[in-house]
Design a protein around this nucleic acid. Structure first.
Length: 262
DNA sequence: ATTGTGGCCTGCCCGC
DNA sequence: TGCGGGCAGGCCACAA
């Protein structure tokens, strides 16, 4: 479930390793290394490099390294957590075990003295991954920064509105929980064709997109939305009390209110 | 090119 | 008490 809100917390945590130099790479899980990367390759490319800055686009966390070193791209999938010096950024992750087991450590940078310490990815379900120099251009604008014109452009499609919001190539950072929250706040039916929105509805969507993402970020997670507590069997709309409807839209479990979402 | 589907992976929870 | 099946969703390969 790490969506934009969680990965941004990871980014802030990862700031603590800026200025530290990689002494060793621990990559015990070959599956976790993507796009041809190997443990030996990661070791060769990263050892001796200093982390110079940390960025985030959508759900992708990026660590820049010194000299002509690679950009390290970290994806967290559903259950990935980030730990720096043994501390986690997010206490409670939905749909993932919150137990702390070292056997779920899939990738780590160990830093050289004097600061030492380490940065670890702990991912029970192994849906995340690590790559060097990820193709950042394949991601759309970040959901916290997208403007109304860019949003209007990505709505030029007959695909379901929700599928469009979750298309990371067009809008980076909105996951399933955030999408439900945004559309619930905006009063829009997730299954509507994206291009069917009127100009007024597009403006409303843009406003709620920005506000909802900022709220989730401030509250500390994509599971902190106002819709979230009702997003379960028997749940009723927190706005009007209508029993929520559960459907699959865009291939994802979708909860929405049949009364106020049109 | 665009859009939709299935599968990856694993822990957890339910019902028997 | 154990076990099997269903479920969660980010992402990618693949099909239409």
């Amino acid at each position: 479930m790490p969506e934009l809100a969680e990965v941004d917390a990871y980014r802030r945590l990862a700031e603590e390793v800026v200025g530290r130099t990689v002494a060793a790479v621990v990559a015990p899980d070959a599956w976790y290394l993507k796009r041809g990367l190997t443990a030996a390759g990661a070791e060769a490319e990263l050892t001796g490099r200093t982390v110079t800055s940390v960025r985030r686009t959508g759900k992708l966390l990026l660590l820049e390294t010194s000299g002509d070193g690679p950009v390290l791209g970290l994806r967290f999938g559903m259950s990935g957590r980030l730990l720096v010096d043994g501390h986690a950024a997010v206490d409670n992750l939905m749909y993932a075990s919150n137990r702390e087991l070292e056997r779920w450590d899939r990738f780590a940078l160990v830093f050289a003295p004097p600061r030492g310490g380490d940065l670890r990815m702990r991912d029970s379900r192994r849906l995340g991954g690590v790559e060097l120099d990820p193709a950042e251009a394949r991601l759309g604008p970040d959901a916290l920064a997208i403007g109304p014109a860019a949003l209007a452009a990505l709505l030029e499609s007959g695909a379901p509105l929700k599928a469009r919001l979750m298309d990371q190539a067009r809008l980076a950072g909105v996951g399933n929980l955030a999408a439900d929250e945004i559309l619930w706040r905006a009063g829009l039916d997730p299954a509507r064709p994206a291009r069917s929105l009127s100009p007024a509805e597009r403006r409303r969507l843009h406003r709620h997109l920005r506000a909802a993402m900022a709220d989730l970020l401030a509250r500390g997670g994509s599971h902190t939305g106002d819709l979230m507590p009702a997003r379960q069997p028997g749940g009723v709309c927190p706005k009007d009390g209508t029993p929520l409807v559960r459907r699959t839209v865009g291939g994802r479990t979708t909860w929405s209110c049949p009364t106020h979402q049109h």
